[in-house]
């Protein structure tokens, strides 16, 4: 049986925040003509093509700037990173290699791909959600936790 954590569940914040992410992807698609996939935007920096660097860096600076803009208006929400350094290094490597081989991450496949009914993105999303569930189970329940 699924044990839902009602006290942690934040449905309105989730839907509104999700819609803002959707607007971000819409701006990127309808003005710049591209898919807002974070791993692709970052990864493209490492196979540089003429005229291709500036907008990628501008997008990443925008993401960095989000917490600064937020802080000017309100208190930043908690960012709790429980993982130790060894776990973070391993996880980072897996995310870096995996998203590039898999041509996308939660944004490119999960949001944009599913929005345009891409079969590849549906398969990718099922794959990374699947191993995400398994690894979290292993990390939280199989070994102590």
């Amino acid at each position: 049986m699924i044990d839902i954590a009602w006290e942690l569940f934040t449905p309105w914040a989730a839907i509104i925040g999700g819609a803002i992410i959707g607007v971000s992807a819409a701006v990127f698609l309808l003005f710049n003509g591209r898919i807002a996939g974070i791993s692709g935007i970052m990864g493209g920096l490492f196979r540089p093509m003429p005229g291709d660097i500036f907008w990628r860096v501008a997008f990443i600076i925008g993401m960095f700037a989000a917490p600064w803009v937020w802080q000017a208006i309100a208190r930043l929400p908690a960012i709790e990173i429980d993982a130790g350094y060894d776990t973070l290094i391993l996880a980072g490597l897996l995310v870096g290699v995996g998203t590039r081989f898999g041509s996308g991450c939660t944004s490119g496949h999960g949001v944009c791909g599913l929005s345009r009914f891409s079969v590849r993105s549906l398969v990718a999303t099922l794959c990374f959600m699947g191993t995400g569930f398994v690894m979290t189970y292993v990390a939280r329940h199989a070994f102590g936790g």
Binding site: G98, G102, S103, G130, M135
Partner: peptide
């Protein structure tokens, strides 16, 4: 790639 990504994500 997606399986590896999910492992890191989890």
């Amino acid at each position: 790639g997606s399986l590896l990504f999910g492992m890191g994500w989890g």
